[in-house]
Design a protein around this nucleic acid. Structure first.
Lengths: 201, 201
DNA sequence: CGTACCCGAGCAAGCGATTGGCCGGGTAGG
DNA sequence: CCTACCCGGCCAATCGCTTGCTCGGGTACG
């Protein structure tokens, strides 16, 4: 059980299979997706998947890692060399949105099956990453309060929690029905709502 | 298969079982919860559940119906005899929050397994109800724009979509970790954010 | 007796995962 | 050029287990 199995030969085929699996995870969630469905999408049998991966979880692992690395990298660059917290937050919002549209599956997995993943030692890095994300947001919100730019009665932690989840939202609209907005329209509407609210000044 | 099975004898025990199932659905989602887990929570065997319900889906059906009826009823009363759209929206926000805290499971089911439910004829009423909800929100937002109270450049449909999903968020915090906010704190913070944004005036 | 409730045992279907072997395209040695 | 070998990719079959659900029979209460 503890023997080191095949690590991760980064083949072309393998990457393609991950993309197929990610699409299914994005639509149905991780647990609700079966390895047989993934195999069907690839036009092979379920057993053949285990030539590339040693378990269904390792597929999920790879998807989640890629997502979090992307997000954290974006945040670090968003706050680097930026003094104005409002600018930093706007850059974080745009960075988040871009990353989320690149990793739609990871988000669905996190919100549907968070309890499943975070209970496993293998996915301990999830908690670590989430903490860094939270701290980054709170730092910028607090800075905005201190320099008088944001309302002094702002609960930074509460606003962060709301914001984080709000940012997830538009991702789930991607495949939805009818008239849809462009990414820019959504982000601009969101930023406007965040900074100014709906009331006319 | 098409024979009319037992309808729904509204017994005490039955209602209790639904509450137990709802708690599990709220934590793990509908599909991820097994009938055996529900039975375990009730201290009986899985087969014994089928004395009360003819399927797992009918349990879900009952939960979802109760939720939507509650929400729609609250909205209708929120907008009745109210001229000021800002007041109406505030009442809708508070009504939603109250309903959601009463039906935590229904919300989890809708966001985790929406694709699963809405694809079935049995749950066609889900789409109907969502349409009425959407129309109610948009009506009030448009009225606010017309009387100059809300920003004229507001995309009512976009704001509704954001708002609807934002309102669902705090529900999932209920069992979460650490310091938590009271319902009033969350609602007030939310309303403040909605109307005024984070920027100091 | 009847009704409400539940047990115990089990079913078919589907699940994730494993295994041994087939196949075709290199690559190397002669 | 031919032969021997390897190797990535996949199939076929199967394992042990869980899923939602069924059903005949039992028990306790009124």
């Amino acid at each position: 059980m503890t023997t080191t199995k095949k690590a991760a030969p980064p083949s072309e085929r393998r990457a393609h299979l991950i993309r197929l699996a990610a699409d299914l995870f994005a639509e149905k969630g991780f647990r609700a997706t079966t390895v047989r469905e993934i195999a069907d999408a690839a036009g092979i049998l379920s057993g053949s998947l285990y030539h590339h991966f040693d378990s269904k979880e390792s597929i999920g692992d790879e998807i989640l890692r890629g997502f979090l690395d992307d997000v954290l990298d974006g945040y670090r660059r968003a706050v680097a060399d930026v003094d104005d917290p409002r600018v930093a937050i706007e850059r974080m919002v745009r960075s988040s949105t871009a990353a989320l549209s690149r990793h739609r599956a990871a988000l669905t997995m996190l919100q549907n099956d968070w309890a499943y993943f975070s209970a496993q030692d293998r996915f301990a890095y999830l908690r670590t990453a989430m903490k860094e994300i939270e701290q980054t947001w709170i730092d910028q919100l607090e800075r905005g309060k201190q320099d008088g730019q944001f309302r002094a009665d702002l609960d930074a932690r509460l606003i962060y929690r709301l914001l984080r989840d709000i940012l997830w939202i538009p991702t789930s609209w991607k495949q939805a029905q009818g008239k849809s907005w462009t990414t820019d329209e959504v982000v601009d509407g969101l930023l406007r709502l965040l900074f100014d609210g709906v009331v006319a000044r």
